[in-house]
Design a protein around this nucleic acid. Sequence first.
DNA 1: ACAAAATAGTTAATATATAAACTATTTACA
DNA 2: TGTAAATAGTTTATATATTAACTATTTTGT
Lengths: 158, 158
Amino acid sequence: MSKVKKLYESYDWVGEIANKTIIELQKTAEILTELHNDFFSRFDISSTKFNFLVILYTGYDEGMMLSEIGEQMLVTKANITGLVDRLEKQGYVKRKRDLFDRRKVIAMITDKGKSFTEKVIEEYKVWSKSIMTILEDDEKSQLIGLLKKIQVGLIDKI
Amino acid sequence: MSKVKKLYESYDWVGEIANKTIIELQKTAEILTELHNDFFSRFDISSTKFNFLVILYTGYDEGMMLSEIGEQMLVTKANITGLVDRLEKQGYVKRKRDLFDRRKVIAMITDKGKSFTEKVIEEYKVWSKSIMTILEDDEKSQLIGLLKKIQVGLIDKI
DNA sequence: ACAAAATAGTTAATATATAAACTATTTACA
DNA sequence: TGTAAATAGTTTATATATTAACTATTTTGT
């Protein structure tokens, strides 16, 4: 059951096209997040957990440092601790101390986590294709181009 | 201080362009959310609180039903209760019972909330313009067009 | 008119996110 | 070499989000 009922145009207060662009980006992303939540809840994970697992899955076999994973996600270090706690509880990840630098904690994906991630990735590919049928392929490329340009522009402002 | 360090291309696992589109949308939105948080934290609010206030500000003078506001935001009714609690504590909003249907709760924006919202809106306009300089105006229109198309497509899938 | 269903909002339990303070360990350098 | 600074992660307090169960009120259908 979703929260989204209909699309409102609730921004009379916006004048500039820059404003509108940001708001439409946010709105699109909110709807997308909503859909992602629906999708991932079928597997009892969140999209953050999925991101974490994918990074670990496609990463090195010896595992990865927590902060190394954190750098690739928009997640603070405090949050990584909790994230790993919960993933550990689900049996998808385990912790290991780095023997050469005992400050570091290495996260390793378990066999259970590996096969789980493979399964979700496959279903995610099918799912994301199915929800993106509204755009033609050239529109998708166009959109990706614009988004990457924005990302480059935004990352400088941070 | 922000979490974002650099832009990773961490999706070797993605094949389809539909996949990439969604991931780039998410990534863009995450960076944008991060920037929004930085912006709004200067005013001691979240972007959700701002949304709420703007809807109330541009709405009817007699206030609005909580669920009516909720319909325009991607927020569950349980969350609205807490949101209004916190906004009430900040003095920007007050509650009122609907006399004709006592199930309903009306949220009213206070004078303090009104002038606060006006101030934030003005600064938001300047801010959003400044962070969107990377795109030309015709690119922005193009992007808005694509985003609206996606929204229409996605809303059907929910 | 009245019982059942629908509606509006709150509460409770839990998950997820943040910042700030903290512990443990390693590195830098005087 | 020993102390200050830097680094990695955890803990704590709090904000925000979700779902499910709950209360109060109104509407519906007979």
